[in-house]
């Protein structure tokens, strides 16, 4: 029914296992680590040269501390790369999953193929939007 299905099947397991590991880190970073007034960035290999400037900005305007926390995190290219990999695995795993459901439930060939292509296109566009968002996040240190 689906040529190359076993490769996709295996990739779904691999991406799932990687997402299991990476999502824990993702939640920790964005819900706990970037929480109120936590400035322990050095502990995760912080790469910015203007850490002190970021800290001063955040202290001057605490309401914007989350923005500066993310600016600090993304100053390290490792964390931008982490998010790019996460988006890639997430959109792949999610949209392959939708594709599997379509293959299982849709019996009409033309409709199934059209639905699958629609899902691939939506997934690809979403992936591009995600990648562009991460790459283009350049903190405005005003």
């Amino acid at each position: 029914m689906n040529s190359g299905g076993s490769k996709g099947w295996l990739l779904q397991r691999i991406s799932g296992a990687l997402l299991f590991l990476m999502l824990g880190t993702h939640f920790y970073l964005y819900h706990y680590f970037m929480g109120p007034a936590d400035w322990g960035f050095q502990s995760i290999g912080y790469g910015a040269t203007d850490l002190e400037a970021l800290k001063a900005l955040a202290l001057a305007d605490p309401s914007r501390s989350t923005y500066y926390a993310l600016a600090g995190l993304f100053a390290n290219p490792v964390w931008k790369a982490f998010d790019i990999i996460l988006i890639t695995l997430g959109t792949y795993h999610g949209f392959y999953g939708i594709h599997s459901i379509i293959d299982d439930w849709m019996t009409h060939n033309t409709r199934r193929n059209l639905s699958n292509w629609l899902v691939y296109i939506i997934g690809f566009v979403l992936w591009v939007i995600g990648i562009v968002s991460v790459i283009s996040f350049n903190p405005q240190l005003v």
């Binding site: 914007r64 988006i87 939007i129 995600g130 562009v132 968002s133 991460v134 996040f137 405005q140």
Partner: peptide, 11 residues
Amino acid sequence: IWGMSRMSKGP
């Protein structure tokens, strides 16, 4: 991801 794209457009 839609939220992220909005968030990347300045403070």
